[in-house]
Amino acid sequence: MNLTYPRRVYTEFVTPLQHLKKLSSMLGGPNIFVKRDDLLGLTGGGNKTRKLEFLVADALKQGADTLITTGGVQSNHCRMTLAAAVKEGLKCRLIIEERNHKYNPQDNGNVFLFNLLGAEQIKVVPDGTDVAKEMEIVNEELKKDGRKGYIVAEGGGNDLGALGYVNGAQEILKQASEMGISLDHIVTPSGSGGTHAGLVTGFYASGSGIPVTGINVRRKKAAQEEKVYNIVKLARQRIDFNEEIPREAVKCFDEYLGPGYAIPTDKTFEAIHLLAQTEGLLLDPVYTGKTMAGIIGLVEKGYFEGQKNVLFLHTGGTPCIYANTSTILEHNHSYVETLVESR
């Protein structure tokens, strides 16, 4: 595979791949492993780091002095793009879309970090705004001031950003080999699409045959699978992989989405409490909480039957829990005991 694109390095180590022994035992299904990409470099960690290594390198190559990007009110991507800008000595402007939540500059979590890290501009727009157009407007404003902006795709969700998880797939395969385990399945949050697409491309191009399943956090199944597959087709070309990657390689579940983006379900909260109280692992209510709820649900349905080792990609998002503390704590703490008694 050709991965000769310019790249910055924001994580100077390999993130751990760990066996969740207590969770696996409690669920009575396959061995559940976790890839700790919540520990990746840049402020607060998370999967966007791998994408930004390629995207920011491209921005620097083009001579940009300002990064422009967009996301929801508690956007991990906005936080980490801003952190990358700080690290590179660039400015950063954010377009914050109020999807199901109003923006309050006094909020905790990522909103607090937007201010602490020193975003040059935070422009708040209502849900449904054409954010791509808004980013172009900001870019034009910079041009008029003699500056050069670089638009970072929402969530880093394009074919260039996906290269981060083509690399990530290779890292996972090497780790698993060194640990002497054979992975049968990968489960990832599926949102802006770049992480999911990069994993599909990386594992397919490697010839590993490991299936990747996405748990939707924003869109319904058909729309999300189409979005991810469109990125896969372009990412395949970027790495000069000539074989067609079949549409069937992209699979999502939307049963764990709930009412919409960043709206947790009871199952989301149960997963957050369960992982905290069994593995000391923090999940967020937007991405990883829903994904773990999906893994638990799929284990209970027998989706992984006959498979021994399943890997959960922890994409980070930890700062979001601090913007949702009261809501998380309101939910029943007895779920862990109930689960133990039912097994």
Rank of each mutant, 00 (worst) to 15 (best):
residue 71 G to N: 06
residue 75 S to G: 05
residue 103 Y to G: 13
residue 215 I to Y: 03
residue 99 R to G: 00
residue 72 G to Q: 00
residue 273 H to I: 03
residue 4 T to I: 10
residue 94 L to D: 05
residue 216 N to M: 00
residue 132 A to W: 14
residue 143 K to F: 00
residue 281 L to M: 15
residue 138 V to A: 14
residue 98 E to P: 13
residue 223 A to M: 14
residue 147 R to Y: 10
residue 196 H to R: 02
residue 56 V to K: 07
residue 305 E to M: 09
residue 99 R to V: 15
residue 103 Y to M: 06
residue 247 R to S: 12
residue 62 Q to C: 11
residue 337 E to I: 09
residue 133 K to I: 00
residue 7 R to G: 09
residue 229 Y to E: 05
residue 42 L to G: 11
residue 242 N to F: 09
residue 309 N to T: 06
residue 1 M to A: 13
residue 97 E to H: 03
residue 300 E to T: 03
residue 58 D to A: 14
residue 251 K to G: 06
residue 193 G to E: 08
residue 4 T to W: 00
residue 129 T to L: 04
residue 147 R to C: 00
residue 75 S to N: 08
residue 294 G to E: 09
residue 324 N to C: 04
residue 180 G to R: 10
residue 338 T to H: 12
residue 139 N to L: 07
residue 42 L to P: 08
residue 10 Y to N: 04
residue 262 A to L: 05
residue 34 V to M: 05
residue 10 Y to A: 07
residue 10 Y to L: 11
residue 237 Q to H: 12
residue 12 E to A: 07
residue 110 N to M: 10
residue 269 F to G: 02
residue 64 A to K: 14
residue 199 L to W: 07
residue 259 P to C: 01
residue 124 V to R: 06
residue 10 Y to C: 02
residue 305 E to P: 10
residue 150 Y to T: 04
residue 160 L to S: 05
residue 236 R to G: 01
residue 252 C to Q: 03
residue 333 H to P: 01
residue 135 M to C: 15
residue 207 G to L: 11
residue 257 L to R: 06
residue 217 V to R: 00
residue 337 E to H: 11
residue 2 N to S: 07
residue 208 S to I: 09
residue 150 Y to C: 01
residue 180 G to D: 11
residue 26 M to F: 13
residue 37 D to Y: 00
residue 194 G to F: 07
residue 312 F to R: 01
residue 248 E to C: 11
residue 155 G to S: 09
residue 255 E to Y: 00
residue 329 L to C: 05
residue 316 G to D: 12
residue 224 Q to E: 14
